[in-house]
C-alpha cells in the first residue's frame, strides 16, 4: 500500500472543557478525495486549522509526505505543498480576480523581494493566473474587483488561488456553503474535475455532494472520527446513521 500524503496521528486540542479535536488519526492517500463530514460544531474547521498551522494542536503529530509539519507556520506549510480554502471566503477584495491569483503564482515563482518591475506586467504570473481562472470558469471575470464577485464566484476564485500555489494537497472547508443551486452544481462539477488531478481533503455539509465526490469519508462527531470508509460503507454504517445521518437522509 502507498504512503499516505497526509497523516494525522492522535491529534488533540481542547478549548476549556471542550475537546474539539479528541484523538483524531486519519490518513489521506495520494489521489483520493477524502471527505470529512460531521454535524455543526464537530470540530471540522478546527481540524483544517490544525492541519494548516493556524491552530496549534495540544498534542499529536501531522505528517505531510512523510515530513513532520506539526510545528511549521502556515506559510511554510503552503510552501511544502498544502493549500486551503476557508469556510468564510478569504480573498483580497480590493484586488482584481487576476491579481488575487497572480499573488499566489508570484509566491510560487521566485522571490517576492523584487522591487523594480511592475508586478502587473509579469506575463508569466498573469498567464498562470489566467490558466487557473480559466480552470475554475472565471476567465471572463479576471479584471473584476474580487470583492464584487458573487458568492459562488468568490468560492471558485479561492480555489483558483489555491491551485496557483501548485499544491500537492487541497484542503477545502465547505466550498459549497452559501452558494446558490446553480453555483453549487458548477462547483461540484469543478471539484469532480479537480479530483482527477489533485488529492483533496474536503470538509462539506452537503451530503449529496459528498456522496457524489468522495472516494472515502471520515465522520467526525464531537472531535472524534467515529468511522472512515467508502461511500457505501459510510451509508451503511449503523453508528453513523444513528449519530449523524438520520434515517431519512441515507
Amino acid at each position: 500500500m502507498a504512503e499516505p500524503l497526509l497523516r494525522l496521528e492522535d491529534l488533540r486540542k481542547h478549548y476549556g472543557g471542550l475537546d474539539v479535536t479528541d484523538g483524531v488519526s486519519l490518513d489521506v492517500m495520494p489521489g483520493e478525495i477524502h471527505a470529512v463530514i460531521g454535524p455543526n460544531g464537530a470540530g471540522k474547521t478546527t481540524l483544517i486549522h490544525e492541519i494548516t498551522g493556524i491552530v496549534a494542536p495540544d498534542s499529536g503529530r501531522i505528517l505531510f509526505a512523510g515530513q513532520d509539519i506539526t510545528r511549521l507556520s502556515l506559510p511554510r506549510r503552503v510552501r511544502a505543498g498544502l493549500a486551503r480554502s476557508f469556510q468564510i471566503t478569504s480573498i483580497v477584495a480590493g484586488f482584481s480576480a487576476r491579481e488575487n491569483v497572480a499573488l499566489a503564482a508570484q509566491a510560487r515563482s521566485g522571490s517576492s523581494f523584487r522591487f523594480l518591475r511592475p508586478a502587473s506586467g509579469e506575463a508569466v504570473l498573469n498567464d498562470t493566473a489566467m490558466a487557473a481562472l480559466d480552470l475554475v470558469g472565471l476567465a471572463d471575470r479576471a479584471a473584476v474587483p474580487a470583492g464584487t464577485l458573487s458568492h459562488g464566484e468568490k468560492r471558485a476564485l479561492e480555489i483558483a488561488i489555491a491551485l496557483a500555489t501548485r499544491p500537492r494537497l487541497l484542503l477545502l472547508d465547505e466550498p459549497l456553503a452559501g452558494a446558490g443551486p446553480e453555483e453549487t452544481e458548477r462547483l461540484i462539477a469543478l471539484l469532480k474535475r479537480l479530483g482527477a488531478d489533485y488529492t483533496i481533503l474536503l470538509v462539506e455539509h452537503d451530503m449529496q455532494a459528498v456522496f457524489a465526490l468522495a472516494d472515502r469519508i471520515s465522520v467526525l462527531v464531537y472531535g472524534r472520527v467515529i468511522a472512515t470508509g467508502t461511500v457505501p460503507e459510510i451509508r451503511g454504517n449503523a453508528e453513523v446513521r444513528a449519530a449523524y445521518l438520520g434515517e431519512d437522509d441515507a
Binding site: T52, I54, S73, L74, P75, V78, A83, R84, F86, S90, I91, V92, A93, G94, F95, E99, N100, A102, L103, Q106, S111, S112, F113, R114, F115, L116, R117, P118, A119, E122, I161
Partner: peptide, 19 residues
C-alpha cells in the same frame, strides 16, 4: 512591484497572504 503587491495584499488580508 512584487514586493508592493505583497504589502498591499497583506494590508487587506494578511491571512490570505500567509495562505
Amino acid at each position: 512591484s512584487r514586493f508592493g503587491r505583497v504589502l498591499r495584499a497583506a494590508r487587506e488580508n494578511a491571512q490570505r497572504v500567509e495562505a
